[in-house]
Nucleic acid binder design. Sequence first.
DNA 1: TACTGCGACGAAAACGTTTTCGTGTTGAAA
DNA 2: TTTCAACACGAAAACGTTTTCGTCGCAGTA
Lengths: 342, 342
Amino acid sequence: MKPKLTLKKIAKELEVSISTVSKALRDSPEIGEETREKIKAFAKHYNYKPNNIALSLKNRKTKTIGIIIPEIVHHFFTTVISGVEKVANEMGYNVFVCLSDNSFDKEVLNMEMLANGSTDGFILSLAKETMQKGDYHHLKEAINQGMPLVLFDRVVDDIACDKVIIDDVTGGKKAVQYLIDCGCKNIALISTVDYVSVGKLRTHGYKQALVENNIEINEDLILKIEEMENSEAEIEEFLKNKKVDGVFAVNEHFAISAIKTIQEQGKKVPEDVSVIGFTDGELSKRFIPSLTTVSQHGMKMGEESARLLIEKLERTPSEDDYYKTIIVETELVTRNSTKSKK
Amino acid sequence: MKPKLTLKKIAKELEVSISTVSKALRDSPEIGEETREKIKAFAKHYNYKPNNIALSLKNRKTKTIGIIIPEIVHHFFTTVISGVEKVANEMGYNVFVCLSDNSFDKEVLNMEMLANGSTDGFILSLAKETMQKGDYHHLKEAINQGMPLVLFDRVVDDIACDKVIIDDVTGGKKAVQYLIDCGCKNIALISTVDYVSVGKLRTHGYKQALVENNIEINEDLILKIEEMENSEAEIEEFLKNKKVDGVFAVNEHFAISAIKTIQEQGKKVPEDVSVIGFTDGELSKRFIPSLTTVSQHGMKMGEESARLLIEKLERTPSEDDYYKTIIVETELVTRNSTKSKK
DNA sequence: TACTGCGACGAAAACGTTTTCGTGTTGAAA
DNA sequence: TTTCAACACGAAAACGTTTTCGTCGCAGTA
């Protein structure tokens, strides 16, 4: 095991100065051709690679971006990471992935770790607990220190920064409109509690669609789930004795739980009840019946987030300082959990 | 926007030297109580946090570990990352996640990025292309430079390093034995091509189980799939006109494709054909019928890998230099895609 | 011969830390 | 009064780079 090669060692070995080595490797015309070739040959032969940490310290930039997500065991976030990685790598950046586990404290901790020089900026989707608390001081602090920040998916208005979101309202509306077009009259909504922005917005879309079609909003047909844990039981309880012919669920899991419950009640999907989910994951594709869903294009969200961040990083700070919000369009993917449109 | 606070700035502001500040903040007894308190109060008030990069350079360690995985949109890998993150964070480490996209070149590139000082060591699962090529020079080089390396899941014997694997052979054997116990006579295997180690090993387990039960191995009942892309069609073709009553698939997707095909042929799962998969993902749990699978405990693999790596990092290099291989046990999770045992 | 200019290279600062080794001041012991 | 330890602090090196600014020798010019 030989320790890493450094400029200093090369310099000593070749009996030149450190600066000469550095310049030679960067093809500076200051260095005579002969010496330059000799140094480059040596470096190549012994596989010299400059030390990233030293470069980071010198340049005061790390060429690294951080992404903090609430949970990784979740297809949507996974596709987002994938998108971020893709464009980051294309632009010569590395990606630090951190998990907040939906915990406020872990989110703050992660931000502190990443903010102390490890990254040039970050991409974040808020932890559930953070949204619930409504405490965003850590974000503000980071921005204040000149750390560019891009929020995606679970965002919040209070923070002035770049954002990448989907049109949750329109997405929800599209889904419900589709159900209505299929002839559904009694459409239930299975959503999350309101402090999760996406739940709130999709609920909004649901209501909008109903209103636009002159259907009365029946709060009894709306279920708001707090905990993922026993969502299945809650959904079962909720759908018991309700005569619904359409269900819009704000994620895959709720949708599938709904289908199971419905089937257990002896009804058929989609013949008796049509079901639409949100987020286009593996489950939606391969479940039987396969799920009609509102696709979120996580990969695209990741790509856009990374692009936005890197763009900000590589611009002189004050050149043109305003914040963008990019809205990634949703798409209704129709499969077999809904009747065909009339 | 105020730039980051540094020791130097504190020193200037308080009219003391940099060393005094540093020592005061680290509670050195060298510094008088009064000055110490003053400095600490100032630092706290202005929220001073030492610069990680500078620390890394000084200490020649980054407190960061890298993990390179073939693909992230894959439940198993996702749970592994989760496990790595967990113990890494507990031990005060950060995690760099990189994706090789199953490409040899990207794997090499990623390693180079991470090896140049950015991380203290890494955890890796080989890209498919790498295993196919059998070119491991980048791994050897890293090890040679003193970079601890832990290989997991997709490992290779040629490399001397710590490893975390599951007992693929035993796992496969367990699954097939279970099928036999359920009364299956004609058991098909849907696997991957042999250069993917896990495919090879699980195939091995399949054969062992048959041999031990005096069942003849019929190569016609073995399918090896190269590309994920059109695996569904291949499986359909493969199962056509075969009278099998049991299927062992080396992953969820193959298992589900098999079930679909079987159902389309008018047969029932599990009444006519029992199916067992590998990897315990969301799909297995929620598919109908829910899948009996061999669970890999990805989270545990991640935890073990991280522990192994960090242990090596925090030990003096030559103290006790041998390599461990940890075998994480598989577990057969029985659900509804298999008949009950006789 | 003396000056200028240039080619080829080195010294040193800087990035932000930690740490070793001074060094100046004080108070007390001799 | 002198000497010495203890105390409180500062200077400087080091980590590995890049970059600015010398500096040295030599050839060409006046």
